[in-house]
C-alpha cells in the first residue's frame, strides 16, 4: 500500500489464534497505517473478534508476529492498552454508575488525574450528544445511547488507535446513522480506526481499506472500490422468485447473458457491466421472475464471489 517510511501502527504476520482444537485465526497478515480506517469484514465466526482481542492485548496470540504501536502485546500489554480505545462488541458499561461517572472512573483506570478526566468527560459526552443525560444511570439509556457512551468512554485516554468491534450491531437504522456520523467525524480529525463488521454498508461507509475474512483467513484486501472492481462487476441484476429455488433449467437458459451467475435461496444474481441491458435480455427470454432489480455491486457481492456464501445468514 503505502510505502512511506512510517512504521505501521499495527503489524501482523502469520498471526494465529487457537482455542483448544478450534483455529479461530489462521495465519493472517496485515498492516494498519496511522490515520487509516481499517476494517475486518466477514460473517460471524470468521475470526474478526479474536483478531481484535489480540490487538487489544486481552488475548495472547497462539502464533505468528503481532506488533501494536511497535510493541509486543504479550510483553507490553499494559503499555499498549494505555494507548488504545476499545469499543467492545457487547456493552460493558458500568451499570452501578451514572453516565458521567462511567467516564470519570474509566479515566481513573488509565491513571488520569481527576481534573483532566472531568474536563474530557464533559467534552466527549457533548461530542456523542449525551450532555443531557450526564447524571442518568446507564440502564435506562437506549441501545444507541449506550453505544455512544461506550465510544465516548473509549476516547477518554485520547487513544492512538480506536478498536471498534461490530460498532453498530443490534442498533436500529437511525441509531446506526448517528454512530456512523460520530465515527466519520473522528476520521476527519485524523483518528486511526480499526473496526470489524459483518455489514457491507458499514464497511463501505467507514473503511479506507479492509480485509475480507472467512474461516480465520484473509480472502482479499483493498479499498471497497478496488475490491468491487477486482472481484465483481459494475452492476448486478437480481431476479427474485416466489419459490425457495429458482426453476432448475433457468441457469442454463440465461447462461451467456451475464459474466457470472450466483444462485441463492429464492433469487438469482447476474453479474454484468450493463444491468439494464441484461435485464432486458432476460425479459426477452420470457423468464418469469416475481421481480427484477438492477443495482450497483457491493462488498456483499465481493464476499459472495470469494466464498460462495452471503455475509449475513439467510
Amino acid at each position: 500500500m503505502n510505502a512511506a517510511a512510517e512504521l505501521p501502527l499495527v503489524h501482523a504476520r502469520g498471526l494465529i489464534k487457537r482455542f483448544d482444537d478450534l483455529v479461530a485465526v489462521d495465519g493472517i497478515d496485515f498492516d494498519v497505517q496511522k490515520g487509516e480506517a481499517f476494517g475486518f469484514l466477514g460473517p460471524n465466526g470468521a475470526g474478526k473478534s479474536s483478531t481484535m482481542r489480540m490487538i487489544g492485548c486481552v488475548s495472547p496470540p497462539s502464533g505468528g508476529t503481532l506488533r501494536v504501536l511497535g510493541l509486543d502485546p504479550v510483553k507490553n500489554g499494559a503499555d499498549i492498552r494505555a494507548q488504545l480505545g476499545v469499543v467492545p462488541q457487547e456493552d460493558t458499561l458500568d451499570l452501578e454508575l451514572t453516565v458521567r461517572e462511567n467516564m470519570l472512573i474509566y479515566g481513573r483506570y488509565f491513571g488520569l488525574g481527576r481534573k483532566v478526566v472531568h474536563e474530557r468527560a464533559e467534552r466527549l459526552l457533548e461530542f456523542v450528544q449525551l450532555e443531557e443525560r450526564l447524571d442518568s444511570k446507564v440502564e435506562p439509556l437506549s441501545g444507541g445511547m449506550k453505544r455512544r457512551l461506550t465510544i465516548a468512554r473509549s476516547l477518554i485516554n485520547e487513544p492512538d488507535i480506536l478498536l471498534l468491534d461490530e460498532p453498530t450491531t443490534g442498533l436500529d437504522p437511525q441509531a446506526r446513522h448517528v454512530v456512523w456520523d460520530r465515527l466519520h467525524e473522528l476520521k476527519h480529525r485524523g483518528a486511526t480506526l480499526l473496526l470489524t463488521t459483518h455489514y457491507m454498508d458499514e464497511a463501505e461507509q467507514l473503511c479506507d481499506r479492509l480485509v475480507v475474512m472467512d474461516k480465520g483467513k484473509i480472502a482479499a484486501e483493498g479499498s471497497p472500490v478496488e475490491l468491487i472492481r477486482r472481484y465483481s462487476t459494475r452492476e448486478v441484476v437480481e431476479l427474485r422468485f416466489a419459490a425457495e429455488r429458482p426453476p432448475d433449467d433457468l441457469a442454463a437458459r440465461i447462461d451467456g447473458l451475464a459474466r457470472r451467475v450466483e444462485t441463492l435461496s429464492g433469487r438469482l444474481l447476474l453479474y454484468t457491466d450493463d444491468g439494464d441491458r441484461t435485464a432486458e435480455r432476460v425479459h426477452e427470454l420470457g423468464v418469469q421472475a416475481q421481480s427484477t432489480l438492477v443495482r450497483r455491486s457491493t462488498l456483499e457481492d465481493v464476499f459472495l464471489h470469494l466464498t460462495g456464501r452471503t455475509l449475513v445468514d439467510e
Binding site: P88, E90, T92, L95, Y109
Partner: peptide
C-alpha cells in the same frame, strides 16, 4: 453479568 472486568482489563489494569 455486568462484564465489569472485561472493560477494566481493556485499560492498563491487569
Amino acid at each position: 453479568y455486568m462484564k465489569l472486568y472485561d472493560s477494566v482489563l481493556s485499560t492498563p489494569l491487569g
